[in-house]
Amino acid sequence: MYVRIASGLALAAGLALCAQAEAAPQYGSHGGYGGGDTIRCESDGGRQRYCQADTRGGVRLSRQLSNSSCVQGSSWGYDRRGVWVSQGCRADFEIGRGGRGGSGWGQSGAGWGDRGGGQVLSCDSNKERLNRCNASVRRGARLVRQNSNSPCIEGQSWGWDRNGVWVSNGCRGQFRID
């Protein structure tokens, strides 16, 4: 009987540790933009997850990892305490530095904008069609802001080469060109 109780307690403790690890943001270098720390925050099973971080310098989605859409204000967002995700959104987020306020980056309208460290290009896949947005790309392109409900997943619904950015499958977004 004591063995069963001890086994049950060990199992409960192990599950509690797994739940804590699942909820904790993962800091590190996940292909971020270089201005601050990058955290990974994941909504598993469609549940809302909150990842604590110092967001005073702003937050931007740097890489979507899920097939579920990550749309700011709908399936992800942030406040001064951290980043939240829901509805299956899993992504890497860059946490900015230097007191830029909470406005984030790259929130321009359509077309080009100079946002420091590169230019921002809006590129839209309308009616699920492939679209190419021409630009001179030297070092790369990164999704700055997703404007669609359809997921923008690098290598699947968007990508880049030296001649610009391509989007498909309804991905609409703003891309930083370096």
Rank of each mutant, 00 (worst) to 15 (best):
D92G: 07
Q107P: 00
C51R: 07
R80F: 06
Q107T: 10
S29A: 14
D92T: 01
H30Q: 10
S62G: 13
G106S: 14
S43V: 05
A91M: 07
G101C: 07
S29H: 06
G88T: 09
G98C: 09
R47S: 06
F93C: 04
E94T: 03
Q48I: 00
R60T: 04
S75G: 10
D79A: 14
V83E: 08
F93I: 00
V83S: 09
L65M: 14
S108A: 10
D54I: 03
D44S: 13
W84H: 08
W76D: 02
G32H: 08
A110E: 15
G32A: 12
G46N: 04
G88V: 08
G46W: 05
S66F: 05
V71E: 01
R60D: 14
A110W: 05
I39Q: 07
V71L: 15
R100M: 06
G104E: 05
S29V: 00
R90Y: 02
R63N: 03
C41Q: 10
D92I: 01
S75M: 04
Q72T: 00
G99W: 11
S68C: 01
V59G: 05
S103D: 11
Q48E: 06
G32D: 04
I39G: 08
Y50T: 00
D44V: 12
G106F: 05
Q72K: 12
G77W: 06
A91E: 03
W105D: 10
G58C: 04
G58K: 07
F93N: 00
G101T: 07
R40K: 14
G57A: 09
G31M: 02
Y78D: 10
G88D: 07
G46L: 11
G57E: 13
N67V: 04
A110D: 14
S74D: 12
R47E: 01
Y50V: 02
Y50E: 06
G73Q: 08
G36T: 06
A53D: 08
R60G: 04
D79S: 14
R80Q: 12
R90N: 09
G77I: 07
G34W: 01
V59M: 11
Q87W: 03
G106D: 11
A110R: 13
G35I: 02
S66Y: 03
R40E: 12
N67A: 06
G32I: 00
R80A: 14
